[in-house]
Nucleic acid binder design. Structure first.
Lengths: 194, 194
DNA sequence: GCATGTGAAGGAATTCACAGCA
DNA sequence: TGCTGTGAATTCCTTCACATGC
């Protein structure tokens, strides 16, 4: 579903008011019936013969994905990757905002990156009070688990994990992991005989 | 399979020589039977009663994933994210190396980031000659498709795409896409009523 | 006894075809 | 006619149980 929302965002500039599953499918690289099937799980979306109203569809998917309210995230670890994330422009079209950046390195604390002041990791207890319920882990993998424990203790309800470690976490907290190196390492498999 | 290899890398420091599917499963967060099933598709790996020889298993998986030879990648787009990728330490444990960095911004060309000199995007034609067969796209999404076209024309056989756009590419070229913002945007769905 | 490898059951996701509505 | 929504068929993946081998 998030892919559909992203596709609509990238297309909504057009003057069109509605879009067919076929056109959307071509744009995002999937099949028309896949889209219709996915939508059907959440009820009726479009009108036969005409297609889907773009604005309505966006609003609908945002509601389903719980993106109709702004969500705040805290980044832990302002290294190279963390800095890139802080400056990343793509979050706000999904209604997400990085509201805090934490690090343990005294040399970084107090400085500003991407318009956000880097705080001491000890501030992590304040996340709940500040309505931050997403944690982003961009620390070295050796300290990823303890960082995750801290985030959970501070009331975060989901985590985006950029470390190469699996996180052992109470299952009420949702974790999504992205290991950039591992994704790259998957490619050679598809390039036989080289 | 890449996850198993990653898990073994992170565990291989231990003095153990062999490992059971149960232990490995706990470490990487899956089940023992899943591991055994996955391995079984590629033939016999371990010895009953004893487990899997760590070194042998690593070598075996590397061969399957085509990671037994070093692969070279070219990064296109040295912005915030691109810079982070250049400095990323995790690639070499998978036998991957970023051998070139390209950008179109004259102010960046010639400078050095992460030990690699940034080249003019026009150099992209030299990739084949330099045995670079992986492209990494870290450019703004508006120019992602044309960048992909250039990479394909220059002989790249697989692409790691960090843009938010689906890439229309001949299907002999494998594409893996990572959209950081979208991954983050998936989390609120799992945090009901907030 | 301990841990692997695998057939079989079960469940989930894709794919198809088509009825029904604008 | 054009496009949606959905049952049915198919394929794929996950889960289990257990026979086999060290």
């Amino acid at each position: 579903m998030p892919i559909y929302l992203r596709g609509l965002q990238l297309l909504s500039l057009e003057d069109q008011q509605s879009i067919s599953s076929k056109i959307l499918a071509e744009f995002i690289g999937t099949n028309a019936w896949q889209i219709r099937k996915d939508f059907s799980y959440f009820g009726d979306f479009g009108t036969p013969g005409r297609g889907y109203d773009i604005k309505k569809l966006q609003k609908r998917i945002r509601k389903i994905l719980n993106l109709d309210k702004t969500h705040k995230a805290a980044l832990v670890g302002v290294g190279n990757l963390g800095s890139a994330i802080l400056s990343y422009p793509g979050f706000k079209i999904f209604g997400c905002e990085i509201a805090a950046a934490l690090d343990s390195n005294p040399k970084k604390i107090g400085k500003t990156k991407g318009g956000i002041k880097i705080e001491n990791i000890n501030n992590i207890n304040s996340l709940k009070r500040r309505n931050i319920d997403i944690g982003i882990i961009a620390v070295p993998s050796e300290v990823a688990q303890q960082t995750a424990d801290l985030l959970v203790k501070s009331g975060v309800r989901s985590i985006l994990n950029f470390s190469s470690r699996h996180l052992d976490i109470p299952k009420k907290v949702k974790v999504i992991s992205i290991d950039i190196a591992m994704e790259l390492a998957r490619l050679p498999y598809y390039m036989p005989s080289s």
